[in-house]
């Protein structure tokens, strides 16, 4: 029972951090919050209970290396490099996107109460918080204009998917998980390159300016 409460706490904190991400506009804090969220995420496999195997260790260490150290480091480097400190919320204001976030959380709880799963779910909060993280990541992707925040939004979405994947933890082969890691890694890498190019071409990283490219 003790593991369950810590698991619940960790899941709640993950969603709280996602909400905080919605409310933050300083790029540095956004990256730091993301790193913090990922580090808690890395601990989640151990909170699920069961014996500690090589599988869990690899996942945790992989998450720590990629999402807590490497990607935040790269993003922070990008932040320094482009000398932008703040993101401006786009069409939605901060308050509106926070309220939308609250609604999406409610929606995800509603959805997961309707979802029937055959397997073991570990905790009643796991699926709703996976949904919430996914949705809030998406909201972040929509509501912000700077490329770095959008990358973070994408990564938060990925964190949500990771939580989902925990359901299938015992059945997924290690290889698939490693493949996912590689995917993110490459994805972020490509985005980094694109960001760099936007920067070089247009002298800023505001993706809303990209629409001037359309005929």
């Amino acid at each position: 029972m003790m593991t369950s409460i810590w698991l619940d706490m960790a899941l709640a904190v993950i969603v709280i951090l996602a909400i905080c991400l919605l409310g933050t506009s300083r790029l540095g804090s956004i990256v730091a919050l993301f790193a913090f969220q990922s580090s808690i995420l890395a601990a989640v496999p151990f909170l699920l209970g069961g014996e500690i195997g090589i599988h869990k260790l690899v996942i945790t260490i992989g998450t720590l290396l990629v999402k807590v150290i490497f990607i935040p480091y790269m993003l922070l480097w990008a932040v320094r490099h482009v000398s932008i400190r703040r993101d401006s919320p786009g069409i939605l204001g901060v308050s509106t996107s926070l309220l939308l976030g609250g609604l999406l959380i409610a929606l995800s709880f509603f959805l997961s109460s309707k979802l029937v799963l055959s397997g073991k779910t570990f905790s009643g909060l796991l699926i709703p918080s996976a949904f919430s993280t996914l949705f809030i990541g998406f909201l972040l992707l929509i509501s912000r204009t700077k490329a770095i925040t959008q990358v973070v939004g994408y990564l938060v979405m990925e964190n949500g998917i990771f939580l989902f994947a925990l359901l299938l933890f015992e059945t997924t082969p290690l290889l698939v998980e490693l493949g996912i890691f590689l995917d993110i890694f490459v994805g972020v890498f490509v985005m980094g390159i694109i960001m760099n190019h936007i920067q070089n071409e247009f002298d800023h990283m505001d993706t809303s300016q990209l629409k001037s490219l359309k005929e």
Partner: peptide, 20 residues
């Protein structure tokens, strides 16, 4: 107002968990 909205969303989340 965004700060207060943040507090609102947290409380809402708490309520949802409590209901669940």
């Amino acid at each position: 107002p965004s700060f207060i909205t943040g507090a609102f969303v947290l409380a809402l989340f708490g309520l949802i968990i409590a209901l669940a």
